[in-house]
Amino acid sequence: MKAIVANRLIDGEVVYWNHGAWKTRFGEAELFEADDAAEAAVAQANVPTQVVDCYLIDVAPEADGYAPTAFRERVKATGPQNHPQHGKQAEGGHDIELIKQAHGIARSAGRHNLIKLKK
């Protein structure tokens, strides 16, 4: 399972692709089953006047939803641990709680193509 993440050019905000629009919460991200659909969507999403650093991330099912598998992506989706009142985690919500409690498959700093997923 994949999702598309980027930082918005104008303010750096972490955003997730969903059917032609950028959303600010991981819980709103479009999830792709098929790799080729995900690749095609990235090509469409990566508009250089809108976003920077646009790429695919791995997503895995948790007990009650989905979470990014890479630890780095979990930090991006939630916020810094030292300031729980900053970042997306400040708003709280189900998707944030789920990511915070997710037990990682790969607690990795790496991006999609760097992560070796256990199959």
């Binding site: 050019l9 750096g12 905000e13 250089p48 006047t49 920077v52 780095r72 991006k76 810094p80 900053h86």
Partner: peptide, 28 residues
């Protein structure tokens, strides 16, 4: 010029870096 799309991120990055501006995980 960057916001108008006249220069690419590849070209802009070293310019912003020379002004101490990085893109990090949550923001610049």
């Amino acid at each position: 010029r960057r916001l108008a799309g006249e220069i690419s991120e590849d070209q802009f990055k070293p310019l912003r870096l020379m002004n101490g501006l990085y893109l990090q995980l949550h923001a610049y």
